[in-house]
């Protein structure tokens, strides 16, 4: 007979969550390890590709390319900003590690977008989907990373690929949430107008909802990038390389110099990525008759060669009608 105390029933009555999880994990590890190993494959491929490209580019070429990119999407000031942050990265001697971290972040961003945007679209369309997915997203964001580091290692092993995996778990939620939000907050009259002109649900998504939600989705991308970067340090505990590894090693050896350099590298990288994605988000929000081929380095080249076709397309508004309104 079980002796249950009424005042403190939890002495005897407990749900053995811990044991269940352990049993299930053991079962999974023993029977499905190969399945999980196989799941590494796509991440491996993308990571190899990105890392291969980034580490093959010499620092100077890398800086020049990113300056051109920054200039194109957000003007000359952004170009200068890119040059400064990346040069500093090189000067403090963490270029190589930065590229490793960057490729980890880009890979996890890639998977976050591939998974997160469709999830966001679905949860914007179906209320039930949103209700189901919300507690899962809460758990992904609040569950301490250390809790799932261990099972991930048991199932996937250690190294960069499981590192990307835990990063995806941590960084995915804001993208899903903001995609959902971005689509839901589109003014009802725009949706109604699109329906009145005979949009199919697919046309509605591609021609109206996604373009109008782009600024919000870009904010989600920005958040995902930032969270990825902050996760990189924790992920270095399962032997993920890059700047996080520097920080972890510095702390382990009480080498404050090493830790600070790694941390500084992370901050510089974060600022660089943050500004760049923010500028891209603003661009998608921007209005005006100016086209992409009229600004930045491409616009510069176009105007140099006097490509007139580009100019003809854009008719500047004339002040002729101003008197009417």
């Amino acid at each position: 007979m079980i002796d249950v105390s009424f005042l403190d029933p939890f002495q005897q009555l407990t749900i053995p969550v811990g044991e269940w999880v352990e049993a299930m994990l053991n079962y999974l590890v023993q029977n499905f390890r190969d399945v999980f190993r196989a799941a590494r494959w796509p991440i491996d491929q993308i990571l190899d590709l990105v890392e291969g490209v980034l580490s093959a580019i010499p620092p100077l070429i890398g800086i020049i390319l990113s300056v051109l990119f920054g200039w194109q999407v957000a003007g000359a000031r952004m170009g200068v900003f890119c040059a400064i942050t990346l040069t500093l990265l090189g000067l403090i001697g963490v270029w190589e590690q930065s590229m490793v971290t960057l490729s980890l972040v880009i890979t996890s961003l890639f998977f976050c977008v591939v998974i997160g945007v469709p999830l966001g679209i679905l949860s914007a369309r179906y209320d039930r989907m949103e209700k189901t997915i919300r507690p899962v997203l809460d758990a992904m964001q609040t569950l301490p990373a250390f809790v799932y580091l261990v099972p991930v290692v048991m199932l996937f092993g250690i190294g960069n690929v499981p590192g990307v995996l835990v990063t995806i778990i941590f960084a995915l939620p804001p993208l899903v949430r903001l995609t959902n939000l971005g689509i839901r907050q589109i003014p009802a009259d725009k949706i109604e107008a699109a329906r009145a002109f005979g949009c199919t649900p697919q046309q509605m998504l591609v021609k109206v909802q996604l373009p109008l939600a782009t600024p919000t989705i870009m904010a989600g991308v920005n958040q995902t990038l930032m969270l990825s970067l902050s996760m990189v340090v924790i992920a270095s505990m399962i032997s993920v390389e890059g700047l996080g590894q520097m920080v972890l090693r510095g702390i382990g050896r009480l080498d404050m110099g090493l830790a600070t350099v790694g941390g500084l590298g992370l901050v510089l990288l974060a600022i660089f990525l943050d500004r760049l994605t923010q500028a891209m988000g603003e661009r998608s929000n921007a209005s005006g008759a100016v086209r992409w081929f009229q600004v930045g380095p491409i616009g510069f080249v176009v105007s140099l060669f006097g490509v007139s076709a580009a100019k003809q397309q854009v008719v500047k508004p004339q002040p002729k009608k101003a008197t009417q309104e």
């Binding site: 009259d189 725009k190 109604e192 107008a193 329906r195 009145a196 002109f197 005979g198 109008l212 209005s287």
Partner: peptide
């Protein structure tokens, strides 16, 4: 909706 009826809205409802 595509061919026979077009609608004009109070709030204009243009695509920004």
């Amino acid at each position: 909706r595509r061919n026979d009826m077009s609608m004009v809205f109070q709030s204009f409802a243009l695509m920004p």
